[in-house]
Every structure is written in C-alpha cells, then in structure tokens.
Design a protein around this nucleic acid. Structure first.
Lengths: 294, 294
DNA sequence: GATTAGAATCGATATTATCGATCTGTTTTG
DNA sequence: CAAAACAGATCGATAATATCGATTCTAATC
C-alpha cells in the first residue's frame, strides 16, 4: 500500500469511475485499474464493486477511504513541516466571517502582510458552518468564526468577546417596542452574516416574521438606513461609536445570554502549524490585546 | 515522498546510519543512500548531516520524523480498518498492571477468549508509565492502568474504582500505630506493583523508610505473612474477604483522598478500534458491571 | 601512514509502472 | 433487435526506476 495507490484510490472513490479518475490523474484507465487491483491484492479484500456505470465502494473501501484522506493530508503536512525553517513564508489561507473581516480584521491583515512580505496571504469568507468544514478539510489553515465550536478535531481560542446591541430608529423607546411589532425588516452588512442569523433567531423566538432584509456594504449606510426607520440591525457595541449619542439611531441592550458573542480562531488540532500561521497567531494576539486595552 | 521512503528515513534516523538501516531493511547501503537522496531532492532540503561515523538529523529531519512515525502508524491502521469486516479476529494485545491482571482480569480474559476463538489474545504487563508508552507507540491496543492519565492523545474510561485499605498484624489498633513505627517492611503481590508505589509514597510522606519488601504470588500468602507480623500491605477492600473478621489480620481504612484508586482503560484517541478490541470493550464493560452489581 | 567505518557513485540488471490497443460485458439508443 | 456508447479487464511492448554489487572517496582512529 503506497501513497500513490491511495491517491488513485481516493480519486476513483470520489469520481465513481476508473476512467474519470484516470482523466483527473493524467493517466490512462488501464493504469488506474492495475493500481486498484494491486491495492486490493495487497489488502486481501475488494475495495470496489464494478458495474456497468462505473464502480462503487465496498464496505472495506468505505472503511479505507477516511484513512486515505488522513494520510494524504498528513503527507502534505509532513512536507510543509520539513521545509518550514522557522521563517514565515509561502501561502497562508485564513478564513473569516464576512462581518469579522470587514469590521475587525483589516488592520490586522494589513500589519501582517507588511511584517511578512514573503507570505502570500489569502482570505476566504463564509459562514461559521462552511468555515468549520474548510478548516477540517484543510482548505484553510485556520478561521475566525462564531464560537464556541467544541469540535473534537478542532482547537479554538477566543479572540474577542463582544456585546451585541440592537439598533433601531431614533424614536424607538425600548426593546419591547421592537418585539411588539408585527413584522420586521432587518439590515445587515452582508448576506449570510452571522449577526443576521442571530437576529433572525431572536425574532423567530418571539414569533416575528422577517419580511425582507436590506444589505449594505458599510456601517455608515446601515446607520443611515436604520436611522430612517427602514429596519433594525444587530451590531457589536464597540463599533457603534457616537451615532447613538448624536441621536441618529436608538440603541437597545439585549439580555446578557443573547448579547455576548465570542469570536474564536479555530484550527485543526493535529495539523501542522507553519511558521506563517504561528506569526499570524502572534500578530492576532498582539493586535487584539491592544484593541482590548484601548 | 513515498511510504517506502519514509520507512527508510525512519530507520536511518533511528539507527543513525545508512549501513545499519540497510541491514535492518534487508537491502544494501547504496540503495538506502539513493532513497534518502531522492527524498531530500523531493523535499528540497537536506534531512541528514553526513559525517564519518554515520549521519545525524538536520533540523528539517527532526521536524519530519514525527510525521514519518504517524504516517506509518496510520498506514497500519488503514490496512487493519480495511480488512476488519466486523467479526473479531486476529491479534489483540492488551496491557495491564500486574496486580490488575492477577486479581481482576482472569475471568474477563477467560470469557473473552472463549467467546472469541478467532482472536489471539496477548497480555502484556508493566507499570502505568510503561503501559502509557506502549499504547502511544502502538505496541498494545489498549491497557488497564492506574488513572487518571489525562494525556491529550489518549482516551480513558474508568473501569472500576476501588478503596484501598492497609492490612497489618492482628494486634495493630489503628493507622497511627503503624505510622509511628520507625521503619516498615511491606508485602506486595509482585515487584513493581502499583499498590506498592502508593504505599511507599504514603510512608515516605510520613518519613518512614521502607526497609525491605516481601513479594508473594498469591493473596493467601500475603495474608499469612501480614498476619504473622512480618509487614504491612495495601490492597483493595473488595479482595480481602473475611480474613479480617476471622481475626487473621487487622484492616485500617485510609482517608478518602488516599484510599480511592481508579483503574482506567486507555487507548489511542486517533487509533483504529478493531472489531476484536470493540468486542473486548463490550466484554469488559459487561464483566465489570456485573462485578459492581454483585 | 595504515586501517577502518561509513557514505557517495556508477554501471548492470531486475523489477515495476505506464501506455496503447483490444476484449468483454452492460446499458442506452435508433 | 441491432448498433452505438460506455466502462472495466486484459495484454504485450516500452519506459522508468529500484536494486544490487563493486568501487571510490572521506574522515576518524590506531
């Protein structure tokens, strides 16, 4: 059983056919067949059932597949680990929620990029669920998501904790006034934003349907929209500044159980921590410690 | 980078020389040299420093080595996982403390062996420390040791919790009478027994030197020896039976903090759980649940 | 300076992987 | 129902590469 064999095996399993796998692997079908046969002979059991429209995994194949994946990933990690001489360089792919990226990460990313010119930094955004998958499948080295995650294969560290507050039009006196409305329009920074989900959950819990959502790319636009009474929004208190005191919007605190949200940085427990990632973690710890002190 | 290459790499690293590795791998030195060179070329960095008395790992080599081990183990797991069709068979190697094996495990092992005729059961004994190493290095599939272990790579489950009591000669009135002795002889079931270590720790904490230890293979012999005033011993209360009520020895409870000992079954968190091991766990859970009920 | 242990190198050989063509058995299509 | 299309198995030729054994080179040790 060889790493090459396992790669072939994985491709055949994923694509459901030897021809397709051969095409992907830039080789010919007879070759793929031969390697699978060799693998099966070495293991002493069949991995695929052959039929007219391709192949499907046998029970043994299904048991082997996750190992093939893990071994492949471990090999990639091993290569990286051996090459990594302690100086941050190469590719660093970090995931983040849209909102976190837009509102919190820019200074950090800018500083990291400036400090580490040899690192190619890639930012990938998605929902918490998607990003967890990305980290598990090693599509990103780590990600900022909405915590807690509590996944056995993931390590997480709280990066910052923030209080979410509801913003509404200036005239709104209290939360109760908001909850008593028959239906609600919400304003978000980006579609799929995690704050949107939280807000929708809060509204759903009180039986208030969300009529429509408005999406704006900047905080200022959101403030303007909310101030004009077009809807409500949910944002970290620290980001609101003085638009509230200026009377442009009204701010409403939530009960602590709903209000406090942790943003955590997750990464694979068993994955290799490259120098580039290590430097990133240090930079992040630094940056957010400053933010807290300020 | 290939699994064969990694095996060669591991052997060279462990033996500190290409000739020695070649001998172990049943091949010739030129071959080992060639594969290491290929591996280094593939990675783009040197893995060994060559000098007159063999080779030593470079920093890159040191980083790679743990991955080589892990990949090797994962490959072995993968092979097992693919072959394992759900029916317990093959080799099952279990570790245990001497004492646990002698006093608790025999009925369990007998039943397991009877229920699973296709499994070759191997029992390996050692101290908790040794057994932890055995489990980590995959020399055993799992082990009964003195808990708690709390190692990140190991999962543990408490198998039974027992109260240890001190046994002394019939005339001894209390623990204080024992602690006030100037020196003490202790009686144990086997050398290296974990109860011996606990007892020695207890004595050491009170500044009592252990003069000599007596070792006997059966509980009866220990009772006789202790009853004759030759020394004291430490044993689970459940194993003592009525020798105490019969007046042959005196029994002394310890403070709860010292008295309660957990026996836990440990195994690798990420390791493959074979059908044979799964059946063993079921058998153990069953057997010890009965023991508790009785 | 001779000896020794150990790694590098090299040419010959054996092994293995790859390729392209062909065969066999389905399923779909005309 | 026959033909075409599709998918895997098989096979012989060839290319690649792993292995071996002999030799060379180097740095310690005697």
């Amino acid at each position: 059983m060889d790493t090459g064999d396992l790669k072939v095996f994985e491709a055949v399993a994923r694509l459901g056919g030897m021809n397709r796998a051969a095409a992907e692997l830039n080789t010919v079908q007879s070759n793929v067949t031969a390697r699978i046969k060799a693998l099966e002979a070495g293991l002493g059991c069949a991995l695929f059932e052959r039929h007219a429209r391709g192949v499907t995994l046998t029970a043994a194949g299904r048991r082997l597949l996750p190992y093939a994946d893990r071994i492949g990933r471990l090999l990639a990690d091993a290569r990286q680990a051996a090459r990594d001489d302690g100086l941050p360089r190469g590719l660093l792919t970090v995931g983040s929620l849209e909102t976190t990226a837009a509102l919190r990460l820019t200074p950090l990313l800018a500083r990291y990029a400036a400090d580490n010119p040899d690192v190619d930094l890639v930012l990938r955004t998605g929902t918490t669920r998607e990003l967890i998958g990305d980290v598990l499948e090693q599509r990103v080295d780590g990600a900022f998501v909405c915590g807690p995650v509590a996944h056995p294969e993931l390590g997480e560290q709280v990066v910052f904790r923030e209080e979410l507050v509801v913003l509404a039009a200036p005239g709104v006196a209290s939360l109760d006034a908001i909850w008593s409305v028959a239906e609600m329009r919400i304003v978000v920074l980006r579609a799929g934003c995690s704050y949107r989900q939280i807000l929708e959950t809060l509204l759903a819990r009180r039986g208030i349907p969300v009529q429509r959502q408005l999406e704006f790319g900047t905080l200022e636009a959101i403030f303007g929209c909310v101030g004009a009474g077009l809807g409500i929004t949910l944002l970290p208190r620290a980001l609101i500044g003085d638009v509230c005191r200026a009377g442009r919007v009204s701010m409403h605190a939530l009960p602590p159980a709903d209000a406090m949200v942790d943003t955590v940085f997750i990464r694979r427990r068993d994955g290799f921590t490259s120098s580039a990632l290590q430097a990133f973690l240090a930079c992040a710890a630094d940056g957010f410690a400053e933010a807290k002190a300020a």
